[in-house]
Computed example of a mutant assay.
Amino acid sequence: MKKLILPIAALAFLLGTATEACAQAYLINGIVGGIRLASRAANKKGAPATPAAATGTYRGQTFPMQRTPAELLPKKGAEQVTAMETQLDRFHTALLADSTSALCTPEQRTAIQTAMVNLARAQSSWDLQPYQKEATFYLAEDARRQKAATSK
């Protein structure tokens, strides 16, 4: 537990100096990284890796889109994997539906952050980076759209 204090303090500092979208990306990455670090230290067992991520493209940018087939869902953490992927699917649908309106509400940002934390707790041995990158991409696109809307 003591090992988590320094990363949490550093994360708090970064959040205080970053834009909202950046802060959210740092928050997601920091929380998941801290949980993963603590879990690895407590449990050195090898576990199955997550399925390979597909790639999505939007406005010339690529981002991972990891979706786990039902038959590959782990027994432990299946609910959390499904919840995370559901949140990501909502963002993806909003991304493709309209190229100018916001992708999410503050409540949806909180929901995706909560889903990421819950998944990291349930599946600490999985490679969560594709989920993190996809969520970060959506949050950055949302911030870009909001900035464009306010500058008109």
Rank of each mutant, 00 (worst) to 15 (best):
E85W: 01
P64S: 07
V81T: 14
Q66N: 00
G46H: 08
T50W: 11
Q66C: 00
A70R: 05
P51Y: 11
A83M: 03
T57I: 14
A83F: 02
A52P: 03
T68I: 09
P74G: 07
G56Y: 10
H92A: 14
A54P: 02
P51W: 10
L88H: 05
T62H: 12
T93A: 14
A49M: 13
Y58A: 03
K45S: 13
A97W: 09
P69L: 13
E85F: 01
L96K: 01
Y58C: 06
P69T: 11
P74V: 02
G46V: 10
P48A: 14
G60P: 02
K75T: 12
M65Y: 08
Q61E: 13
K45E: 15
A97F: 04
F91G: 04
L73G: 01
Q80Y: 05
A83K: 07
F91L: 07
A97M: 06
T57Y: 09
R67Q: 08
Q80V: 15
M65E: 14
R67A: 01
T55M: 03
G77P: 07
T50R: 15
L72G: 03
G77V: 15
A52L: 09
A83G: 06
P51G: 15
T55P: 02
E85C: 02
E79I: 03
P74N: 06
T62A: 08
F63L: 08
L96F: 11
K76R: 15
T55I: 15
K44G: 06
A47V: 00
G77S: 10
